[in-house]
C-alpha cells in the first residue's frame, strides 16, 4: 500500500516537473517534438532507476555508517556522473540503435536536476531500499508523462498565433503552469 502511495504521488501529485520544478532545462529544451521527448523521457527514467539504487547504497552503506553525510552532495554528484558515463559506454557497445535513440541525451542528463534531486529527496525522506527504487521509477514515469504532454501541446502551439514577446520560453512556461494547475486536481487522491 505504501509503495502504491509513493508511486501515485511521484507520478501525479508531487510530479517532479510540476511540483518540485526539477529537470526544467530538458523539459523546456527537448519538448518541441513528440519523438525526441519520448526518448528523453525513457533515458531519464532509466538513469533515475539506476541512480535510485546507487545513491541508496552509497548513502546507507558508506555515508551514514561512517557519519559522512556532509559529503552527500559531492559523492552523489560524482556517482551520478560516473554512472551516466558507464551507461553511455555500455549502451554504445551493446545496442547501437538504442544509443542512436537516446545517446545524445545521456550526457545532458548528468547535470540534470531531476537525477540529483531524486538522490537528495530519497535521502531526505528516509525511504528504505524498495521504496527508493519505486520512487525512482515512478519519478521517471512522471517526468516522461510531463514531457510528452508538453510536447504534444507545443506541436499544436507552433501553428498558433502567439504574441511575439511570449514566443518560445514565455508561452512554454505559461503552458507548464496551466498543466501544473490541472495536475493539482489530483492532490485529493491521497490525503
Amino acid at each position: 500500500m505504501n509503495l502504491l502511495v509513493i508511486f501515485i504521488s511521484a507520478v501525479l501529485i508531487n510530479n517532479f516537473v510540476f511540483y518540485y520544478f526539477l529537470g526544467l532545462c530538458p523539459y523546456l529544451g527537448v519538448s518541441r517534438k513528440l519523438g525526441p521527448s519520448i526518448s528523453m523521457g525513457m533515458a531519464v527514467t532509466f538513469v533515475l532507476s539506476l541512480t535510485a539504487v546507487a545513491s541508496w547504497i552509497i548513502n546507507h552503506w558508506i555515508l551514514l555508517p561512517y557519519g559522512l553525510d556532509y559529503l552527500q552532495i559531492v559523492s552523489f554528484i560524482l556517482v551520478i556522473a560516473a554512472l551516466v558515463q558507464l551507461v553511455e559506454m555500455f549502451i554504445r557497445k551493446v545496442s547501437p540503435p538504442l544509443y542512436q535513440a537516446m545517446g545524445i541525451y545521456l550526457p545532458l542528463i548528468t547535470t540534470n536536476c531531476v537525477i540529483m534531486g531524486l538522490a537528495l529527496l530519497a535521502a531526505l525522506k528516509n525511504y528504505n531500499f524498495i521504496e527508493t527504487v519505486v520512487f525512482g521509477v515512478s519519478a521517471g514515469i512522471g517526468f516522461t508523462l510531463a514531457i510528452v504532454l508538453m510536447a504534444a501541446i507545443r506541436e499544436q502551439l507552433d501553428l498558433a498565433d502567439v504574441p511575439r514577446p511570449l514566443r518560445g520560453a514565455g508561452i512554454a512556461l505559461i503552458t507548464a503552469g496551466i498543466i501544473s494547475l490541472a495536475f493539482m486536481g489530483f492532490s485529493g487522491i491521497i490525503k
Binding site: L166, L173, G177
Partner: peptide, 13 residues
C-alpha cells in the same frame, strides 16, 4: 507551483 510557472513566463515576456 502554477503561480510560479505563469509568473516567470510573464516576467520573461
Amino acid at each position: 507551483p502554477p503561480g510560479a510557472f505563469i509568473m516567470l513566463g510573464l516576467i520573461i515576456a
